[in-house]
Nucleic acid binder design. Structure first.
Lengths: 148, 148
DNA sequence: TTAAGTGCAAATATTTTGCTGTCAC
DNA sequence: GTGACAGCAAAATATTTGCACTTAA
């Protein structure tokens, strides 16, 4: 979802297997939903879609699996400026880190990768002696279509 | 809290008054708590402290006031990487925008202002034709004391 | 005076947990 | 076989809302 999806489906499953993590039908369903996603999904949406693959998937299994994927650094948790509700959105973590811009009027989410962002993080690690594990830059405002 | 507090107490109250917003004893209590804060507070902490000033303050009034201040752009809402719980933290919005770094081991929050961050936002506005109203860069990782 | 703000209680929304049974390896 | 994982139901956490009363301007 962030940038064109150029991956072979099943990659997430392989990554977990490679780390010796047990695979179940429910996890497979959830992983496939996350891999196939074309937009940012929240826990309820993931549950709904996963149930279309495996009807037995429970809400708590979704949360437990999201937690596992977060701990493994395979997905990122986003707020998208809480454009609607207080919940979180999830996306596959791929190579390039990127910024999320949420339009406060139309709700559109735009993603943007930037070398300046990469430099900023390097600068932070250097100047603050801080080892970055995860970073999240979210911006709220008005997109080109909605700005005035 | 973000950087030394060099302001006269009551400034927040004046800013609201200047916008024609009605002042009440409860709001005054909440505003003073936010102004005097030396660290990031969540809604429950704000409630507890505000009640020491005015015992009648209700939790819903805290949420309603935080909402007002957010809409007025006078405070920012932070997640601080959800270091503990799913709630939000609030801080006065002052001139300089800054980055929040949360140590995943000791929980310390470090703040950092950077020209690169300012440039990044300018670049974003220019390249994406996006008008930024609010931005939030949060980083999770290991601080100098905890990194290994 | 009166529109805006408040407390209170209840409702929502979101996420987590305890427990017992099941399944992957 | 056994420890990790599952569903289910209930709890915990966080925030919002409806309503009748109060108050700032």
């Amino acid at each position: 979802m962030p940038f064109p999806q150029t991956e072979i489906p099943g990659r997430l499953q392989k990554q977990l297997a490679g780390r010796g993590i047990r695979m179940t039908a429910q996890r497979r369903a959830i992983l496939s939903v996350i891999e196939m996603a074309t937009k940012h999904l929240d826990a309820s949406q993931i549950l709904r879609k996963a149930r279309r693959v495996d009807a037995t998937v429970d809400r708590s299994t979704v949360y437990r699996t999201l937690d596992l994927l977060k701990r493994q650094g395979l997905i990122d948790e986003l707020d998208l400026m809480h454009i609607k509700g207080e919940g979180h959105y999830y996306e596959r973590r791929l190579d390039r880190d990127h910024i999320h811009m949420a339009c406060l009027r139309c709700g559109k989410i735009t993603e943007f990768a930037s070398k300046t962002f990469d430099s900023l993080k390097k600068q932070l690690e250097r100047d603050c002696h801080f080892h970055i594990v995860v970073s999240r830059l979210e911006v709220g405002g008005y997109c080109s279509g909605c700005r005035r």
